[in-house]
Amino acid sequence: MIVTDAITWILDNRSTFMVAFNRHMLMCVISLGLAALISIPTGFMVARSPRAAFVSVNTAGSLRSIPSLAILAATMPFLGIGLLPSLVALIVLAIPPLLLNTILGIREIDPAVLNAAKGMGMGRREILWQIELPLAMPSIITGVRTSAIQVIGGAALASFIGGGGLGDFVNAGIALMNMPRLLVGALPIALLAIVAEILFGWLERRFTQKR
């Protein structure tokens, strides 16, 4: 049975597996974190200006249509191989959903709520932290969820440009026509994606306010 063979291989080569798994997680967490640090503040800055929001939404939208492998491949000529080009590519991959959902979340806030907040004497900062951020939060988490899944899948391709991670097992499995080895990479990637989906889905519901 291939699956049991794969699990046996993992148990026998635990340290090799953990190195790859940790590398995979590292790539996902760093790229997602940096993408969030770039996208969320940018989203807040552009959301209130129709022109800036239009430009951002369209740029992000066209970025999103580029296949993950193409983005990874495109970084290689500039940054060579290894972890850095992989991270850059994954950040580019993670930004569009985060940016789009942040802008959407802010734009969906009822203008009457902002009018009332301003009319009662709240300043820019108070409106941002007490009103806009909490109300946009469910939408932002939707963006994090989409990005996380993109990045987990995208990181599997990082192996092609020497980024390491679980994709190494998939590539080795294909090269050697060794199906259990392929699953050593593929199964954890699938599991990670499912866990991310469930976790962020739950968070999203926690933050969603009924109106």
């Binding site: 009822d110 009332a116 009319g119």
Partner: peptide
Amino acid sequence: RRTIGYVIQQVGLFP
């Protein structure tokens, strides 16, 4: 504005 009460049609309660 903090010294002037302000009421609007859509109320604008913070949801």
